[in-house]
Design a protein around this nucleic acid. Structure first.
Lengths: 151, 151
DNA sequence: CATTGCCCTGAACTATGGTTTAGGGTTTAA
DNA sequence: TTAAACCCTAAACCATAGTTCAGGGCAATG
């Protein structure tokens, strides 16, 4: 006979707090989970597959409402295959866009790092500060840099 | 003479709501922005550089508190170059980890898409449903699939 | 057969990152 | 010189994603 699992076992397996699993259930993400006659949640092997999918969608930033929509489609059987596919394809497109933004932003941050990393960093930053101070002064704006008390 | 900019001009340039810029200011992210004698924020050209950095850090998921810490370091002059470098390097490591997770999760989602996309999808999903139903039945657990009213 | 460890619910609470509203002053262009 | 377009603050409000707490019931082990 196949085994069943308690909420703690599932939580440990997926490295999630028990409270999160309860929260997901309350939000309707776990319609496939049964309860026994004393009200305890009873997880089966196949539930792990669904939960894994939920985790992947969560890890890629899908909102809980949308995950619920997806899971609900899954529970409606083969007639929703087209909708599910469309959801995942749209989501994939979003993730790719997000990855692109991340990559581009990181490139700019990397540029900053290499400036800080260069032998010349002190002079570069000093010049930057001087430039800002000159510009602010020309506009009669407050100098934003904090006076070093030791100089 | 160099130009100054209003909050609306900055908001339009960065494609941010004005309320977000005020919120960032309240959170201490914009210590370099001056105010004129009627209390209006006055932005200079060089402020755009700082704000661009803030946007890059935000786009890569740095929390606002940490962005404030970074900007505060910037305002303290050359003595903080090492700390700033360290912050960005740590942040970069986090972003790379996040990108890795995203990539791996997306790969699994892609596998699902291709299953939905295959000619055989109907049979695959049908088999999956049958498997779950069989397993749940063996464990005397409720069948989670919704009965199709047209069959 | 009691104690320890689990499990449950509902409701309150938290953190984050904003947005909206109320009430009021400023600038600009006709 | 007045209306429209801006600007300000403080405070309330919102959504999202959980976490914590109070109060109480089951399970298993010594």
């Amino acid at each position: 006979m196949e085994k069943t699992y308690s909420i703690k076992e599932v939580a440990d397996y997926f490295n999630l707090p028990i409270s999160t699993i309860r929260y997901y259930d309350k939000k309707g993400l776990l319609p496939f989970v049964s309860k026994n006659d004393t009200g305890y949640r009873v997880f089966s092997e196949s539930d792990f597959g669904f939960i894994k999918t939920i985790c992947r969608l969560k890890d890629t930033g899908m909102p809980i409402k949308d995950i619920k929509t997806y899971i609900d489609l899954c529970m409606q059987g083969t007639s929703t295959i087209g909708q599910r596919k469309q959801m995942l394809q749209r989501h994939k497109a979003n993730v790719l866009k997000q990855q692109q933004l991340l990559t581009n932003s990181l490139k700019e941050i990397d540029t900053k790092i290499s400036r800080y990393d260069s032998k010349d960093s002190f002079n570069l930053i000093t010049a930057q500060i001087k430039f800002v101070q000159h510009e602010k002064k020309g506009l009669k704006l407050r100098d934003p840099f904090i006076r070093d008390p030791f100089i």
